[in-house]
């Protein structure tokens, strides 16, 4: 009963090309590699004096952010502008919207303005899937973070950063550290790393910050940093929200820092050439020591640079996937 097709198929057109980017789950290794290759070419372009290219010229991209964001919103905006799109930024606080109704209404209003792409951030898991299921055909949806579910562009910029530093994924061991329970970044990283062939993926957190049966996602679970970081090549830190202290998940920031904060002492547990990543914004002295965040083994600023390139890549790929789909449907109806 209800043997549905893979719900993540909605991301692909009939040729198997990207038309929305909602999650890294269920996408093939070839497709993820294509995103990385495309992004790679944009990284080099960003270093040039003239940074624009016309891939989205005449297109309207709406950044629809129901959650506050500075970094993600600005890199999406910059990415769209470098692709020559017209960009509309909308910051809509969820607290002022009633459940569901407003999201659908907002969407319908924006559609009436003939937008071509929605970049969506929302506090509810599944919001991007919901929007992709509701939009007019040929409008692309890019997930800029939905609840605890997925943040696929963040995961792919992490993958790009890793590939540019380490060359490949297969021989490497990864550790994701911190608030796994609430992290959409961790989930998207895990799916991407598995598909790209990572040798081993670990999560390290106290039990209050580990979702139930996370091992079913193909990771090894550790609650101790010394054991969890042993032989690790890449350490991916997560952001810790202050409200975790008040919701009985953690006793204090200082205790968390002592046990799970990335310090010079703990970095020594990992491989000597291990690198440290963080999706930002960082809480110095809570998740990470300043000496590490600013040190030679930190890739944090590379992540930001690569973020623009990855967002340009998925935006141009999704738009092109929608165009191909439109042409396929037109030729199919012409044949009838």
């Amino acid at each position: 009963m209800f043997e549905h097709n893979d719900p993540n198929r909605i991301q692909l057109n009939s040729n198997g090309q990207l038309r929305h980017f909602l999650t890294t789950e269920g996408l093939s290794r070839e497709l993820l590699t294509e995103i990385l290759d495309t992004a790679d070419s944009f990284v080099d372009m960003g270093a040039k004096q003239i940074k624009k290219m016309p891939l989205l010229r005449g297109r309207t991209v709406v950044n629809l952010f129901f959650e506050a964001s500075t970094r993600t919103l600005s890199t999406f905006e910059l990415a769209a502008k470098r692709l020559s799109a017209d960009v509309l930024n909308l910051n809509i606080s969820t607290s002022s919207t009633s459940k569901g109704e407003t999201l659908k209404d907002t969407l319908m209003t924006l559609e009436a303005m003939h937008s071509d792409m929605f970049v969506v951030r929302h506090a509810d898991s599944g919001a991007a899937h919901f929007i992709a299921s509701q939009v007019t055909p040929h409008v692309a949806v890019i997930n800029a973070g939905d609840g605890r579910h997925a943040h696929p562009t963040q995961a792919m910029l992490d993958m790009l950063t890793i590939r540019r530093h380490k060359g490949s994924f297969e021989p490497l061991k990864f550790a994701i550290v911190g608030d796994i329970l609430h992290s959409r970044v961790a989930r998207s990283q895990i799916h991407a790393l598995r598909t790209l062939g990572a040798c081993e993926i670990r999560v390290i957190a106290p039990k209050t910050l580990l979702p139930r049966h996370i091992e079913a996602m193909g990771v090894k679970v550790f609650t101790d940093m010394r054991q969890g970081l042993k032989d690790v090549d890449v350490i991916m830190m997560l952001r810790l929200q202050k409200e975790r202290m008040t919701s009985a998940l953690l006793p204090s920031e200082s205790e968390f820092y002592k046990l799970y904060g990335m310090t010079t002492e703990k970095l020594a547990y990992a491989r000597p050439d291990a690198v440290v990543m963080h999706p930002g914004p960082i809480n110095r002295g809570v998740e990470i020591e300043s000496a590490i965040a600013d040190g030679p083994r930190s890739l944090i600023l590379d992540q930001v640079t690569n973020g623009i390139a990855v967002r340009m890549a998925v935006m141009s790929m999704a738009m092109s996937g929608q165009m191909v789909e439109k042409q396929l449907q037109q030729s199919a109806s012409a044949a009838h």
Partner: peptide
């Protein structure tokens, strides 16, 4: 339900 599906989808679980 709080289990593998809720974990994967990032939906808050009810144990």
């Amino acid at each position: 339900h709080d289990d593998t599906t809720s974990t994967r989808l990032g939906l808050a679980g009810i144990p």
